[in-house]
Design a protein around this nucleic acid. Structure first.
Lengths: 179, 179
DNA sequence: CCTAATGGTTCGGTCACTGAACCGACGGTG
DNA sequence: CACCGTCGGTTCAGTGACCGAACCATTAGG
């Protein structure tokens, strides 16, 4: 959050949580990480976030144990940022927030979240109404809805158009497209 | 949020939601409203928020249909801010966020949320494990836990120490206390 | 008339965010 | 080898959100 990042007077776990993930862009970074984004550049083009802010957020999230910085190739040295268990645990929050936004402020349906095992759309609490179980994040299938731009400009958005499980690593093809 | 409040490039209901409730303090105002706080001054002393920011947030939340400004006495004219249905619908989000904060960053137990009808503590998704139903917000009983300061300075925090249902209007006694 | 309570508005200062430029390590090509 | 491109940053000037303190308007009560 802007300026004083903390809520010193608050004895409240909501306030503690907001001190960590309440700053601008932070939750969108976590959302993208859930969608499978892992690389600095992919976050950058997909979010349209200033580079400096992205670097700061990745560092904070790593320091707080929400992301883990991990070298995935030696030469040239390249790191990726992967959600930890603590980060994955933000899924119910993001789901609830997205649901609220959709019900109250979005007209068209942008994405569906389904139980990968049976294809049923998740219920309001992230459970599978058919199976009667809470669906673990890796078994959530994200499917684009009719409201989503079918031909977005950036390669990350394009890669996210394929139905995919949450957390499944994203690998956008290079940005070539001529017509 | 600071500066550009919007996330223009994002086709996402999470981003839409964050444009509205993602600014600093906003979610804490909504939390307090769920706890029963309704008056400007009560928000002020309980949150320790700058007056100008509080006024701005109340106005935005009212404009977005999350709070409703309502005159509760004519002379002197006094208004209170009450959650609308749209605001109450943020409860699952706040609950999930608080749960995450508690599990990952808070040591002591600050508050319990119970089903008022049977006294059972709510499960991870806001349901009552005993009754097997999702508990409506008005039937959630908030009970202070052992980690909470038993004698806080401000009268609002003191009034919130009593077990109480969510949304139940708060009426802090005037700030007298001598010992 | 004076004081207190409530619900603001105004204002100067600070600091987070923004966008653009720059940078260093490495790889590939000619 | 020179040159270019990619990736993952850092630096920096400018802007505007947030901060805290002061001020103000309305009404009531003594």
């Amino acid at each position: 959050m802007a300026l004083g990042k903390d809520y010193a007077t608050q004895e409240c776990s909501i306030a503690r949580a907001l001190e960590i993930i309440g700053e601008r862009w932070t939750l969108l970074v976590v959302r993208d990480a859930l969608y499978g984004v892992r690389r600095y550049n992919d976050f950058l083009v997909h979010l349209g976030i200033p580079r400096a802010v992205l670097a700061a957020r990745l560092q904070t999230l790593t320091a707080e144990g929400i992301l883990e910085k991990r070298r995935y190739q030696q030469s040239p040295p390249r790191d990726e940022y992967v959600l930890t268990e603590r980060g994955i645990a933000l899924w119910p929050t993001l789901r609830a927030l997205g649901q609220w936004g959709r019900e109250h402020f979005t007209e068209a349906r942008l994405r569906y979240f389904r139980h990968a095992d049976c294809g049923t759309e998740l219920g309001p609490y992230g459970e599978c109404p058919a199976c009667g179980t809470v669906v673990p994040v890796e078994d959530v299938l994200m499917v684009p809805g009719p409201g989503l731009d079918p031909d977005p400009a950036d390669p990350v958005s394009r890669a996210l158009l394929r139905p995919r499980r949450l957390l499944e690593p994203l690998d956008p093809e290079p940005a070539e497209r001529i017509g």
